[in-house]
Simulated assay, not measured.
Amino acid sequence: SDNGLTFADAVATACETADIRIRLGSLEPEAMDLATLQRFSQYKNFCPQFHLALQSGCDATLRRMNRHYTTAEYAAIVKNIRDVFENPSLTTDVMVGFPGETEAEFHQSLSFVESIGFAKVHIFPYSRRPGTVADKAPDQLSPAVKKERAARMAQATHQSTEAFFRSQLGRTEPVLIETRSKDGYYEGYTMNYTPVHLPAAPEHINHILPVRLTALDPSGTFCLGTCVDAVKDS
């Protein structure tokens, strides 16, 4: 920026001055270089949940999208995150059905997404936007093809979400209780943004509880847990 400060400086300042959890939103992969990751890892209130925009796991599709990274570069960033942080989670966005995406290219994208092991993937089919380069591109895919590919991607990523949540079972994590859930339990999040439902009380909302993650809900969309200690103010 004009004053010489960087995105990493802003995050570091927030971590140093605010006695709350600091969690980042959607990120461009290139922003998470090794030095930045190592800097963030020094802060106990920095949440190790990284939403790194992917868009496609196929290099040819990424080039047509004018994305400025390759799948190899993306995978290297993911490796750095997992090397620097003890228990991070990775989430992303994936588009299917971009103009010109062949079945082989979709399969490459699907295989790459599976190889990363994301905790959660937001999947969306490409939709045309008048005036954009992609809207004028040849080889537009039919709605039926895009819907079918989105369903296949969703099936694969649901399995990776379940696998990630299962990897959290048995851990005792600080869970910030946020609200009462529809199932009668209370809902909160660990530092890596794993959703947890647990027995609690109204006075626990906006407090951090040490919670042992005990099981995966049958839906595969959140963990179940039990409080193991006294309430700690957030």
Rank of each mutant, 00 (worst) to 15 (best):
G100K: 01
Q155H: 13
G117E: 05
K120F: 05
I208Q: 12
Q168D: 06
A201Y: 03
A137S: 12
D217L: 09
D2Q: 11
L52F: 02
R21V: 06
G117S: 11
R82I: 10
G184N: 08
I22W: 04
D233V: 11
S167M: 03
L213W: 07
T132R: 02
H107D: 15
F98W: 07
T17Y: 01
A31Q: 12
A230H: 14
S41M: 01
F106P: 01
A104E: 14
E73N: 00
Q42R: 15
I20D: 14
S56K: 05
G184Q: 07
A60E: 12
R23W: 00
G184Y: 11
D183L: 03
T91N: 03
R63A: 13
E86T: 14
K146M: 07
M65T: 08
C47S: 10
A10Y: 09
V231R: 12
L198A: 08
T61A: 04
K136N: 09
Q140M: 07
A72Q: 07
Y193E: 11
R63K: 15
E114P: 12
G225Y: 00
H122P: 05
Y74A: 02
I123Q: 11
E148F: 00
L27T: 13
Y186A: 04
E73I: 02
A201M: 07
I22Y: 02
V96S: 01
G57W: 04
T214R: 05
E30Y: 04
T6R: 11
Y126K: 00
Q140S: 09
M191K: 14
F46W: 05
A53F: 05
P218N: 10
D233A: 15
L198Y: 08
L110G: 04
L90C: 11
G25K: 05
